[in-house]
Simulated assay, not measured.
Amino acid sequence: MKALVLPDGSLNLPEALRERHGLTRGGEVLVEDTGEAIVLRTLDQAVARAQALSRRLVAGRSGASVDDFLAARMGDTGAE
């Protein structure tokens, strides 16, 4: 697909692409410069990517879950 970048920097994404990614009414995207490419991600895509990375980083590690963190904090305060 082609997209047009206007002289003012605006980017016009094709309708099919906007529909596929839930941007039919417009919206924000995150822009990543990888050095070799420009990557656009919706906010939902960026959150899902961060969650997947977090799961990989803590997989199998004891004490790495949110529940473990909260339990430790409760132990620090003596609250039950």
Rank of each mutant, 00 (worst) to 15 (best):
A48D: 13
A48V: 04
A48C: 02
R49Q: 10
R49C: 04
A50D: 08
A50F: 11
A50E: 06
A50T: 04
Q51N: 09
Q51I: 10
Q51G: 02
A52I: 00
A52T: 06
A52L: 10
L53R: 14
L53D: 06
L53H: 10
L53Y: 11
S54Y: 15
S54I: 09
S54D: 04
R55P: 00
R55E: 08
R55V: 02
R56D: 01
L57Q: 07
L57C: 00
V58P: 03
V58N: 11
V58A: 04
A59Y: 15
A59D: 10
A59R: 15
A59E: 14
G60Y: 10
G60R: 07
G60K: 10
G60Q: 05
R61P: 01
R61K: 15
R61Q: 13
S62M: 03
G63L: 11
G63T: 05
A64D: 02
A64I: 02
A64Q: 08
A64P: 06
S65D: 01
S65H: 04
S65A: 02
S65E: 02
S65Q: 03
S65V: 00
V66Q: 08
V66T: 10
V66K: 14
D67A: 13
D67M: 07
D68E: 09
D68M: 09
D68S: 12
F69K: 07
F69Q: 05
F69C: 01
F69V: 03
L70V: 13
L70T: 06
L70D: 01
L70W: 14
L70I: 11
L70E: 11
A71H: 12
A71Y: 08
A72E: 08
A72T: 03
A72M: 09
A72H: 11
A72S: 05
R73Y: 02
R73W: 06
R73A: 02
R73P: 00
R73S: 00
M74H: 04
M74Y: 07
M74S: 04
M74Q: 05
G75S: 06
G75Q: 13
G75A: 12
G75K: 15
G75V: 01
D76G: 10
D76Y: 14
D76V: 05
D76E: 11
T77K: 13
T77P: 06
T77I: 07
G78D: 00
